[in-house]
Design a protein around this nucleic acid. Structure first.
Length: 212
DNA sequence: AACAACCTCAACCGCATCAGA
DNA sequence: GTCTGATGCGGTTGAGGTTGT
């Protein structure tokens, strides 16, 4: 079974078949059938798509393949510094903060929230990138320092000094204004107006928690 | 050249949430 | 209000690739 990598090279991969459903790597023919079916029925009703495509794949598998690989405008290749910076910022602000509180809503939609703000990137890709590159970088150094901003400096002042503060101060601005009040405002940075209600509620709780 | 260790990333799994009956 | 199937998410796996010795 062949599979195409992001750079166009072919890899071979196979998992043992379970039940009567096809599993493992998608073939070019399966991709073609799936794309064709989605072209007819749209990328929404996955149980119908899975049945109509006659791929012997479950709906979840079809959805995953479309979302992570076949979907138009998927951007592949290395993450830019800006993209990496954004991932780190958002993970720092959303992910780690929620690890340390007791609201009980940990990491809900984190990767998809980040992916939504990185056009062409998938949540799976960002998650993989974090696990492979960034979390390791964090472990190695204790802090990040991407695009001139370390996560120590990204921490709300309240975490650093115990004072009340919800702003983040880049260590050096591009304008070269040493020590200027170039404030990173969480409310400006995150526009969640298009998120579904449950996510919006979660973000609201998060922001309320961070500022209380 | 051969082997081992590590890295990458597509795909699967289990669970939570959503939406419609 | 409840039930049930569909959908979406993060965590994890594991085969193939890459790098180091």
């Amino acid at each position: 079974m062949a599979h195409t990598r992001a750079d166009g090279s072919i890899i071979q991969k196979q998992r043992p078949a379970m039940n009567e459903l096809n599993r493992g790597v998608w073939t070019a023919e399966e991709d073609r059938k799936l794309a064709e079916t989605i072209g007819i029925y749209g990328a929404k009703q996955w149980t119908i798509i899975a049945a109509k495509a006659e791929l012997n794949r479950c709906a979840k598998s079809c959805r995953l393949r479309w979302m992570n690989y076949l979907r138009p405008n998927i951007k592949r290749g290395n993450m830019s510094d800006q993209e990496e910076d954004l991932i780190i910022r958002m993970h720092k602000l959303l992910g780690n903060r929620y690890e340390s509180n007791d609201i009980g809503l940990i990491f809900i939609g984190l990767w998809s929230l980040i992916a939504a703000r990185l056009p062409g990137r998938t949540d799976n890709e960002i998650k993989n990138y974090w696990n492979c590159h960034l979390s390791k970088k964090k472990l190695d150094k204790g802090t990040f320092n991407v695009a001139g901003i370390s996560t120590q400096e990204m921490r709300p002042k309240s975490e650093q000094t115990g004072e009340e503060e919800t702003i983040i101060r880049p260590s050096n601005s591009s304008s070269g204004e040493q020590g200027s009040e170039s404030v990173f405002d969480v409310n400006d940075f995150f526009d969640f107006s298009n998120e579904k209600p449950s996510t919006l509620e979660w973000v609201t709780k998060f922001l309320e928690f961070g500022s209380s």
